[in-house]
Amino acid sequence: MSSRSLIYEAIVREVKHELYVEGLVYGIVDGSAKDGDRMTTHRLRKVWVDVDGIGAIDSQGNEFLVIDLDEANPLVTDDVHALFALAYLSSGSHPDA
């Protein structure tokens, strides 16, 4: 991966047993610069616990680092466990899935 976009105020969404992360994104996503744009990732393909946050690669190959969860949003407590479960299943390794 050439770059990793950062996600702040993240909300984890589970739709039909697929995970997505929505939040304020900074970086390059799908070849387009994002500067605090609220957006949702494509379906997450791989997740791992990183030193600085939660790393993820979506189905389009975009790499993200979730820095901050939106703890005020009730959806965070509903679906964040699924994100950690996927990280556990990914065995913590970062190389492209």
Rank of each mutant, 00 (worst) to 15 (best):
V80N: 08
H81R: 09
D35N: 14
F84C: 04
G53H: 03
L69W: 12
V80L: 09
Y88I: 11
K16S: 13
L83N: 03
L89P: 02
E18C: 08
E63Q: 11
E71F: 08
V47Y: 00
G31Y: 05
N62P: 01
G92A: 14
N62G: 06
A87H: 07
R38F: 06
D68F: 01
R43A: 15
R43S: 12
V47Q: 03
G31M: 03
G23L: 03
A82D: 07
G55R: 04
V47A: 09
R45I: 07
A87D: 08
G23A: 06
G31T: 06
K16F: 13
V76L: 04
G36T: 06
A56Q: 02
V49E: 15
S91F: 14
Q60R: 12
D37H: 08
K34D: 02
P95K: 10
V25W: 00
G92F: 10
A72R: 12
S59C: 09
R38A: 09
H94C: 13
T40F: 03
L75R: 10
D30G: 01
D78E: 14
L86M: 15
E63D: 10
S93D: 15
I67E: 05
A72T: 14
I67M: 12
D70T: 05
V49L: 11
L19E: 09
D58N: 02
D79P: 00
F84W: 13
P74F: 10
L65M: 14
G92D: 11
Y26L: 04
G55F: 07
I54S: 01
S59H: 07
V51K: 12
R38M: 10
A33I: 13
Y26D: 02
S32D: 07
V29H: 00
A33K: 13
V25Y: 02
H94A: 15
F64R: 06
D35P: 00
S91L: 15
V21I: 15
S32P: 00
L44T: 05
E63R: 05
P74S: 12
S59R: 08
E71Y: 11
F64E: 11
F84V: 08
G53S: 10
V51I: 14
G23Y: 01
V21E: 02
D79W: 13
L44G: 01
L65D: 01
A87T: 09
D68P: 00
V29S: 01
L65T: 05
V25E: 03
I67P: 00
M39N: 04
V66C: 02
I28E: 13
N73V: 08
T77F: 09
G31S: 04
G53C: 08
A85M: 11
H81N: 09
D37M: 05
E71V: 11
V21T: 05
Y26T: 04
V25T: 11
A72Q: 12
N73A: 11
D37F: 06
E18R: 08
S59I: 13
L44P: 00
D30R: 03
S91I: 14
G31P: 00
L24D: 15
L89F: 13
D70Q: 06
A72V: 09
M39P: 00
F64A: 12
D52W: 00
V21G: 01
V80P: 02
V49S: 07
G31C: 04
R43N: 06
D52A: 07
V29W: 01
G36R: 02
I57S: 03
E22G: 04
L75T: 11
V21C: 04
I57Q: 12
I28V: 14
T40Y: 01
